[in-house]
Write a protein that binds this DNA or RNA. Sequence first.
RNA 1: GCCGACGUAGCUCAAUCGGCAGAGCAACGGAUUUGUAAUCCGUAGGUUCGGGGUUCGAUUCCCCGCGUCGGCUCCA
Length: 637
Amino acid sequence: MPRYTLPDGSMQEFAAPATVANIATAIGAGLARAAVAGRVDGCLVDLDTPVANDAAIEIVTPTSAEGLEILRHSTSHLMAHAVKELFPTAQVTIGPAVADGFYYDFDYERPFTPEDLTTIEARMEEIARRDLPVVRQVMGRDEAMAWFHSIGEHYKAEIIADIPADQTISLYRQGEFMDLCRGPHVPSTGRLKVFKLTRLAGAYWRGDSKNKMLQRIYGTAFPDKKALTAYLTLLEEAAKRDHRRLGKELDLFSIQDDAGGGLVLWHPMGARIRQTIEDQWKQAHREAGYEFLFTPHMANLDLWRTSGHLDFYRESMFNPMTVDEQAYQIRPMNCPFHILVFRSKIRSHRDLPMRWAELGTVYRYEMSGVLHGLFRVRGFTQDDAHIFCRESQIEEEISAILDLTLQTLRTFGFARFEINLSTRPEKSVGSDAIWEKATAALRGAITHHGLEYIEDAGGGAFYGPKIDVKITDAIGRKWQCSTIQLDFNLPERFDIGYIGEDGSRHRPIMIHRALMGSLERFFGILIEHYAGHFPLWLAPVQAVVLTITEAHNDWAVEVARRLRVAGLRVETDLRNQKVGYKIREHAMRKTPWLLIVGEREQAEGAVSPRDRHGKEFGLIPVEEMIQRMSQEIDARN
RNA sequence: GCCGACGUAGCUCAAUCGGCAGAGCAACGGAUUUGUAAUCCGUAGGUUCGGGGUUCGAUUCCCCGCGUCGGCUCCA
């Protein structure tokens, strides 16, 4: 008499071993209908799996992350099934669920077309209507390989060869279609109702550019129509916020062939925003006890040899140039220069910690195909800093950096963070002792802030552990900008040291950190986060004074002058146009405040403000308006 | 770099089967003196991404190049 424990602690008792589906039915018909798989003592299984003994049972539905993943994975099989029916000579390869849906890679003699996608989708719907049971079966390794070879699915056979010997080889059959898969899967194709094929792409077999290029079809699936619609709406919203589009519309920046791909030209309005960002950054760093450095954009190649970049970073570097028969390298990083400054004289333990920041522009070679607006470029400015400190100072410094990081990100309107701690990888430099000590210090700094974190064991760089901070934007997308990395390698390579209290020479700890990462990329993220509606303190034009008729020009100019004196970025619009015309234009430029001046305003020394949402405020004296705007700006922190 | 799609005026887009390259917005000129998201009239604007080919004739078809966009890690 097996007894099954449910997540809420209650029990279900059966006379004989039941399947997961039976248990779901016993709990409720609605749950049974929604169920896609089960979790038995923590392991995901198909619904028709019998559970012989007492066990903890959980019914998995598409409302959970793993249930949705199963739904999508099953939909990818459905797609492969449809493709095999329509194009029998296509070979199936792999087809997992991914973040927003799923994909399946095929090897086929000709490229698929967008029309094929429509056909495949229609066939998928048809197969779903057949409501074919999806059945798991286990096969011997050799038998499975032979069978896949016999039906011409050589990729599948190759995959089997790579599956560890201790793992069971399972296959899933739906009608005539049988695919190698670990599972679990939905019980029948009829369960797949809401899906959509989204795009075609090339993808290398096993992600390796040395291998054959396969054809990838992306799609997505959801538990219900509403969720799919919501997803498509999000995509539209993201497209509306696209920084490349807004960058053009608002005249913020451009990237032109005449200069080169991945090289950003900041136009005046974009440059204003950047200056505001930089001012904010500098102020925060001064307050946090940083000094600023300026270092060159290129250096003798030997410097990069010493730093080791020439060995392990070469494919991201531009080729060196020749200067007076010497090789020079445009910089992909700033750190070696900061080390040279450190090394320029003898340092005492009393000097430490030293915090040196630089808005350092670097150049990195990116393959032409990966360049993408401001997000992936070849020249960008890092808000870089290096802290040289003693071992005993690590935790305190990391803690201070975390403070500065979160404070900075909050200022820019990000409130949700995800913190990742990456620890020692297999290949690494530095002693066990220092790794342990440093990792503990990082962990300590995070918990000291009362923050949650995700530990990525073995995910650190070879030269030290690190903390990465991800932010969530206004439409829920995550971006990693901030990084705090310990470095046990460069101090060694450059043989830097300080004189300790004991009079002997010690190796300092070096911390690399960037809060925004790349100014270009961060700017792109800000544009999309705010959808171009920058908060007042960042807006390139904070207010436009616009007149009703020419009779009010003098007053408009005077209003603008007073705002400007108060430190506000203001323009006038004196054109002989109707107010509606001018309002529309400035509204489209997303100007936060429009200050309308006419007869009444002029007579009373006032303006009639209109905010970016179209809200009107009546007559307000100029000085009061200045005060209101100043308060709005000060509220950013 | 590789696979696929795309490339027409500053922007957004049209141009039937291969037959005179167009519209709206923006720009410029003029009129209008206007109260909360587009006043009217006019003018100008083109190497149809570049090069080559097929053709009487190419924005259109073919080849090469350049660029843009979507992808190329997420394990069967």
